[in-house]
Design a binder for these strands. Sequence first.
DNA 1: TAAGATTGAAACCTCAATCTTA
DNA 2: TAAGATTGAGGTTTCAATCTTA
Lengths: 155, 155
Amino acid sequence: MDDIRWLDESEQRAWRAYLTMQSRLNARLNRRLQADSDLSISDFAVLVELTDSAENRVRAFELARTLQWEKSRLSHHLARMQRRGLIGREECPSDARGAFIVITPTGRKAIDEAAPHHVETVRRLFFDGLTPEQIQTLQTIPDHVLDRLAADECE
Amino acid sequence: MDDIRWLDESEQRAWRAYLTMQSRLNARLNRRLQADSDLSISDFAVLVELTDSAENRVRAFELARTLQWEKSRLSHHLARMQRRGLIGREECPSDARGAFIVITPTGRKAIDEAAPHHVETVRRLFFDGLTPEQIQTLQTIPDHVLDRLAADECE
DNA sequence: TAAGATTGAAACCTCAATCTTA
DNA sequence: TAAGATTGAGGTTTCAATCTTA
């Protein structure tokens, strides 16, 4: 830790800009989604996973893996969503420890109504005005960072 | 809302990649900072603002503005940081409603020790391996999105 | 023992209501 | 009345401990 590789000016600016964008965009998306559809970004993410799945049912641990949520966080969140009637649970015949998470008609209705507004918001705040090159780069950076994260994990 | 401008495949991929990167990178940075230095990203952000300021003292509402935090969030967070001895408060002579937030020796020590590790983590997980072009683009995207956010605000 | 999942406590964030001074 | 700031309630996230079945 003696010769610290501090960020140069350009990196510094890029990093601060990224952090600022990230937090403000997140906050705005959350508020919009909440106001338009009474869902949080997290609710939305769970419902998307459920509708994307073949039978509209997913094992809890699968959800935890794809969303990369702690199992505890998932458990608390699903409990709240179940209380609100957005999801339900079904027994898993092949493994009595686990459960299937299913989307309810209420949950289905919620995501169907929320999705168009949300996409419109994402488009308006993010994609409109970006060039194809920027969108292209936008994909290469996360790819790179996710590689780094994976490498860092098993160190 | 009749003709929804859904995301095309490339946009879809870029958006999901961004969301994934964002949440995982955030989680990792937080855990590292917590493990290395017993600070959260939010603690770090507050301490950076305080050390960046001329006299190591900032009005609370200034902090709220630069960090873009709700005043309530700031108030709660500062209370916790004060309980831990990281910051203190001083009366504001010119406006009896407000207070100066000051960094304590403990807070100074915490950020001085945390910064090198944190920069190293950011570099390792994010910048290492990015080309100057990518870093350049990385700056143009937040600029663009922040413009959009500002435009959306007063609609 | 380990995997799937829940629980409770403590930290954190948001919203609305409130308090004090300008 | 409005600006600077705090408070309390309720939802969210993390961590560690626990429970049940594989």
